[in-house]
Simulated assay, not measured.
Amino acid sequence: MKIHFAPLNVPLRRRLQTAAVLQWIFSFLVLAQCCLATFILLSFSAWWVAALLYVGWLWLDWDTPNRGGRKCQWIRRWSVWEYFRDYFPIKLVKTVNLDPDKNYIFGFHPHGVLATGAFCNFCTESTGFSSLFPGLNSHLLMLPFWFRLPFFRDYIMCAGLVSSSKSSLSYLLSRPQGGNVAVIAVGAAPEALDARPGALTLQLRKRKGFIKLALRHGAHLVPVFSFGENELFDQIQNPTGSPLRSLQDRLQSILGIALPLVKGRGVFQYSFGLLPHRKAIFTVVGKPIQVTASPSPSSEDIDALHEVYLEHLSELFEQHKHENGLQEDQHLTFT
């Protein structure tokens, strides 16, 4: 394989963009393990008292990820996220105004390998979420497992990440004065195993839990489609039923996280590595679907609203696909 090396005269700004993405990849793939190792080392060192104090804090703070988290605007506004945004680049597009007196569920599609657009748009202010949607407070839902890891949990909560448990989502949607936005990558980890350039298949047919909670709390549903999300990494072919896919599905059921075998680019060469490709991400927030609260929604109510959601998502995709380089015969498929 011929390796395509980066030129030596790369502008400083592009180098900073690469560094910003590199630290994010590190945070996503390695930081949790580093935080756990640090805690273990503290526990068996002369600083064991600090570890003990943190355990006390952890006990007092254990339920915070299920109760709206603990957002830090200073971290969300770090200049590093502007370089992160410009690496791809990433753009957040509003189609209609949203009433800040209502609570919302943003269904984010597709999940992609690392839900890059979801993080940049809803866990940082680099694309101007607060300016585009004044009065709304965004929270990106993440697997509960990550909030059990010492130190790491505190860092990710600062960005607006909260647990994806039902109690966490219910807490956000039950805020009486409104203003909360729960962002859910609906396809979740299994959809990441299908994330490759050109993929337009979403795992949505059987995913109705967010619909049920929207009905229970009267939270409005907003479809969000992130064009370019699947273009960031190449993935080894793993069709359903293949030995590799069976192994990945098995590991996903055990660990709760997907383990896609992907290829991106490196820091000093463009042929392979774990950095995403420089592909534009265009995240479009659609118009809200009005939902009337129903404390005990029937299966028929859930199915009906689910179909409405799929229709709105398809319409959003069709309205914006041409400006993102897609052809007329390219459509979303739901499985």
Rank of each mutant, 00 (worst) to 15 (best):
L140K: 06
D301Y: 07
G179Q: 03
A51S: 15
L169F: 01
P239Y: 04
L247D: 03
C72N: 12
S174Y: 02
L326M: 15
H217P: 03
V162S: 00
Q17R: 07
L204K: 04
R265A: 11
R76N: 12
G178W: 02
I105D: 04
V285F: 11
T124G: 00
L232A: 04
V181E: 03
E191K: 00
V291Y: 00
P134R: 05
F282D: 13
V181G: 09
L305S: 09
S79R: 11
G273P: 08
I105C: 06
R207W: 03
V49G: 09
L261D: 06
T124N: 01
F108M: 11
D99V: 05
K208N: 06
P150V: 08
I90Q: 09
Q33E: 15
S168L: 04
E318C: 15
L8I: 12
P134V: 07
G178R: 02
V291C: 03
L149M: 14
Q319C: 13
H306Q: 15
S167C: 08
H320I: 11
L161T: 04
G325P: 01
H217C: 06
N66G: 06
F334L: 08
K321N: 08
D99S: 06
W47T: 10
T124A: 02
E125H: 09
Q327P: 04
Q248P: 00
S226G: 07
L161I: 10
V183P: 01
Q73C: 03
Y87F: 13
K166L: 11
W62Q: 12
S299M: 07
L316E: 00
L29G: 01
Y309P: 13
Q237R: 15
L143Q: 15
F227Q: 14
Q235R: 14
K166F: 07
A159F: 15
W47I: 12
D61V: 10
R205N: 12
Q177W: 05
Y54W: 15
F272E: 03
C34K: 11
G135R: 01
S165Y: 02
W74F: 02
T95S: 11
Q327F: 06
L213T: 05
H277V: 07
L326K: 01
L202Y: 14
I211R: 00
H109T: 14
T124V: 02
L274R: 08
Y155H: 09
W62C: 12
V267I: 12
L204P: 11
H139R: 09
N103Y: 07
L310N: 02
S167K: 10
K91V: 14
F210E: 04
Y171F: 06
K263M: 15
M157H: 09
S27R: 09
L92V: 10
I257C: 08
R85I: 00
H109I: 04
A195H: 00
R196S: 06
G264V: 02
L141G: 02
K263G: 13
W59R: 09
L42M: 06
R85G: 05
L149I: 14
I156N: 04
P89R: 10
V30F: 11
Y155V: 13
H312G: 13
V222P: 10
K71Q: 10
L41P: 13
W78A: 14
L53T: 13
